[in-house]
């Protein structure tokens, strides 16, 4: 388990770095798919197989296909690649390092709460993780579920409006 964690962590961080450093957007998109697969591996290690499957189906499948389709549609060649300013790079690195330092300070220095829930590893495996998530989704979080459906509906209309010939 420990070894798997470090393998997935290495793949995820390496491919995330590749996503932001590649010149060609298509290469970035493929590295992003690799990163999503590594994150799905993390979800399996954390006893959430359902989320791992959703990660691969929704992110690595649907969303990335949409991104690759748009890259293909726009036909961005290497010749008109977008350049990055030097000062922009410096500012970005400084902000990212400060942000990371804050995250490490709060993660390592903070106190961890005692486990409060009842859904331990054994309980989740007994009921099945899909059932547990479904149970919560359709009882405690029904309102959020309905609002999510409205959000998707609005997104369909928004995407249609942007895709029209004249804005």
């Amino acid at each position: 388990m420990e070894a798997l964690f470090y393998i997935f962590a290495f793949i995820a961080i390496f491919s995330a770095l590749m996503v932001i450093s590649m010149k060609n957007p298509l290469t970035s998109a493929l590295y992003l798919v690799l990163c999503f697969f590594a994150l799905a591996g993390f979800y399996v290690l954390l006893d959430m197989q359902f989320l791992a499957v959703m990660q691969i189906l929704v992110y690595a499948g649907a969303i990335m296909v949409l991104v690759v389709l748009v890259i293909m549609l726009l036909n961005i060649s290497r010749l008109n690649a977008v350049k990055t300013d030097f000062h922009q790079k410096i500012i970005g690195i400084v902000i990212a390092v400060v942000l990371f330092a804050e995250i490490v300070i709060y993660t390592v220095g903070g106190k961890t709460k005692k486990p409060t829930g009842i859904f331990t590893h054994a309980v989740i495996n007994k009921i099945g993780n899909t059932q547990v998530i479904g149970q919560f989704l359709f009882t405690k979080y029904t309102l959020s579920f309905e609002i999510a459906s409205i959000l998707l509906f609005v997104a369909i209309i928004g995407a249609y409006l942007f895709a029209k010939k004249k804005l």
Binding site: I13, M22, V70, T84, V108
Partner: peptide, 29 residues
Amino acid sequence: NNYLIVAGIIFCIGALGVLMRKNLIIVFM
């Protein structure tokens, strides 16, 4: 803690990409 630190690293890489790159598609990714 290990998971949170990996999540933090990936989040910061994403933030760096948003701040650093100018290609809209890479910013989106």
